[in-house]
Computed example of a mutant assay.
Amino acid sequence: MLSAVLLSVLAVAGQEPPRDCARPNGHLETVACYGERREQVEADQRVILSRINARLDQLPAEGGVNPQQAKQSLEQAQSHWAAFVAADCRAGEALFGEGAAFALDSLDCEITHYQARNRQLAAFEARYGGA
């Protein structure tokens, strides 16, 4: 997605002073703050999925319980979710074009989806993983 390209461009720009994302200074800093937020929610998701997978690896396969099937189903669901997010956010990109609002809309779309999915995964973990 374009958001990854924008983040790469910002990273190549060199070391910058710490940002105040509560009050970003200009459009580029705003995009960078959105990018940092997206990276954080993505990292949060990896942590949650890692905990779920570790718990599923510990569960015994007995009495009709099939933790490996659950793990495979979750991996498949996650793959479908990623494809959905990409397509859903591309729909917004198509409506904004390649102007200034485009980058923020794309990043905001991804952040919103990650936040929602992270809540779903945390609920799954609490319900089935004993968290």
Rank of each mutant, 00 (worst) to 15 (best):
V65H: 15
V85S: 07
Q78L: 10
A101S: 08
A87H: 10
S50W: 07
E98C: 05
D108F: 10
G64Q: 07
L74E: 10
Q69R: 15
F102Q: 11
F102A: 13
S50R: 15
A91Q: 08
S50Y: 08
L74Y: 06
A82Q: 15
E98R: 06
S106R: 11
P67D: 02
W81L: 02
A82E: 15
G64D: 10
D57W: 01
L95N: 03
F84V: 02
C89L: 08
C89E: 07
L95F: 11
Q69N: 12
W81C: 01
S106N: 13
L95E: 09
A83G: 13
Q72A: 14
L74V: 06
E98Y: 07
P67E: 03
A77G: 00
D108M: 06
D108H: 12
G63Q: 00
A100R: 07
L74M: 09
F84K: 06
A87S: 15
A83L: 12
E62C: 04
G64N: 12
A94R: 11
Q69I: 05
P60S: 01
E75A: 15
F96T: 10
L74W: 07
V65Q: 15
G63F: 06
E75C: 03
A94H: 05
P67H: 01
F84T: 02
F102E: 09
A100C: 03
A70V: 14
H80Q: 13
Q68D: 14
L104Q: 09
Q76C: 06
E62G: 01
L59Q: 13
A61K: 06
G97N: 01
Q72I: 04
Q76G: 07
Q76H: 11
F102P: 00
N53L: 11
A61E: 14
F96E: 05
E98S: 12
E75Y: 08
G92Y: 12
G63K: 02
D88G: 01
I52M: 06
A101R: 03
L95D: 05
Q78M: 03
G97C: 01
Q58C: 00
D105C: 10
E93V: 09
A91G: 02
Q68R: 15
S106C: 02
V65S: 13
A87K: 15
W81F: 09
A91V: 09
F96N: 04
G63D: 02
L95I: 08
P60R: 00
A101I: 08
D105M: 14
L104F: 05
G63W: 01
A103V: 03
S106H: 07
Q76N: 08
A87L: 12
F102D: 04
G92P: 00
R90S: 11
A77K: 03
A86E: 15
A87V: 08
A100P: 01
A61L: 02
V85Q: 05
G99N: 07
L95G: 04
D88N: 13
D108G: 11
D57P: 03
W81S: 00
A70D: 12
D105I: 10
H80I: 04
G63N: 04
G63Y: 00
L59G: 01
L104G: 05
D108L: 06
Q68M: 09
P67G: 02
L104A: 04
L59S: 09
W81G: 06
A91K: 08
V65C: 14
L74T: 02
I52F: 09
R90M: 12
P60I: 03
F96P: 00
L107C: 00
A77V: 06
Q78N: 11
L74H: 02
G97F: 01
L107S: 04
V65M: 13
Q68L: 11
S106P: 00
